[in-house]
């Protein structure tokens, strides 16, 4: 899902706004404005807190128990034992590894592909541009589950056309069972994920491209810079902020991958990802305590990633702000 494009820019924007002061004595008008601000923004704020903060606290509380839904009488407080079980289990670490692998490959490929798509759309002929825009929005808007089914059936040995179309490639034959082993299963999962979410990243990059000052490009051209040199020296540095924001949110999004794995492999061939591990413990096994522990750990992973990103790229966000 692509819920998240504008946030980092927004946060830094608000931080640097310097308008929400309060050091000078407030006039009545300022006080009224404050009140109105909270009246207007309050409901949204409260709703957001209710639907997330409460459940995650509840999940943390439940993760301290040994609790199986079909055996409520045996519920027992076990301190942090569930976390010990999860963190000492190779299955958890393997799921983390697979999730990181999928995330890194997906985001890396998407960054390149998305940039290429953005360049094409940016420079495309005026006649072509609306058509391209419409086409590119379809993968973005399509239901992830539908995309997963489409890719699954295309590669499936029982119903897919991929084997018969590409059997001239080395390693692919009529008998290639894509969902029979780890590498090929992950390949299809990643392909579906990339297809569905690259448009989002490319639209963000397109917005970034539009921000690169045209006169800088022209100046570089006059100086005799080649196309590649201009790309590296002018275009990319000038849209660093857009790139970082896009990467941050795609990374977090890819790390939470669930639908594709659920539809295609159900975790077979070691393709289990962290979200799916949590789902299996709570929903399939009905082990609420253990599953809650996995959920809380997944949440902490996501927090850690965002923290790293924001710490690492703080400078860029600030410089992006300077342009405004």
């Amino acid at each position: 899902m692509s819920t998240t494009q504008a946030a980092a820019g927004e946060v830094s924007g608000a931080a640097g706004d310097g308008r929400d002061g309060g050091r000078v004595p407030l006039s009545d008008r300022a006080r009224a404005e404050r009140r109105l601000g909270w009246w207007l923004a309050g409901p949204a704020f409260v709703v957001m807190l209710l639907v997330t903060a409460y459940p995650i606290l509840q999940a943390f509380y439940e993760s301290l128990f040994k609790y199986r839904l079909t055996d409520p009488d045996a519920r027992e407080f076990t301190w942090l034992n569930n976390y010990v079980v999860v963190l000492s289990d190779s299955i958890w670490w393997r799921a983390v590894g697979v999730t990181v692998l999928i995330t890194v490959i997906t985001v890396a490929v998407e960054a390149v592909l998305g940039f290429a798509l953005a360049l094409v759309m940016h420079r495309a002929l005026t006649t072509l541009r609306p058509i391209l825009r419409t086409a590119i929005l379809i993968p973005y808007a399509i239901i992830t589950v539908v995309s997963a089914f489409a890719w699954f059936y295309a590669f499936s040995i029982d119903s897919g056309f991929v084997n018969s179309w590409f059997n001239w490639l080395p390693g692919i034959s009529e008998d290639t069972n894509w969902f029979g082993e780890f590498g090929t299963s992950v390949f299809v999962i990643i392909a579906s994920e990339i297809w569905k979410t690259t448009p989002f990243i490319s639209l963000l990059l397109l917005a970034g491209l539009a921000q690169v000052p045209e006169d800088l490009q022209e100046a570089a051209k006059v100086d005799g810079a080649t196309w590649w040199q201009r790309l590296y020296k002018v275009t990319i540095p000038n849209m660093k902020a857009a790139i970082m924001v896009a990467l941050l949110f795609r990374t977090l999004d890819a790390f939470r991958i669930f639908d594709n794995v659920f539809i295609m492999t159900q975790g077979a061939n070691n393709t289990e990802v962290v979200s799916f591990l949590a789902y299996r413990q709570t929903i399939s096994r009905l082990e609420i305590g253990l599953g809650s522990a996995v959920s809380v750990l997944l949440f902490l992973c996501v927090v850690l990633i965002s923290f790293l990103f924001i710490k690492l790229f703080k400078v860029d966000l600030a410089s992006a702000r300077g342009e405004r």
């Binding site: 040995i157 029982d158 008998d175 290639t176 069972n177 969902f179 029979g180 082993e181």
Partner: peptide, 15 residues
């Protein structure tokens, strides 16, 4: 078991 054994279900086996 055929090339698709690792994900062959009842329907796949029948086909």
């Amino acid at each position: 078991g055929g090339p698709g054994l690792a994900n062959q279900d009842e329907n796949g086996a029948m086909l």
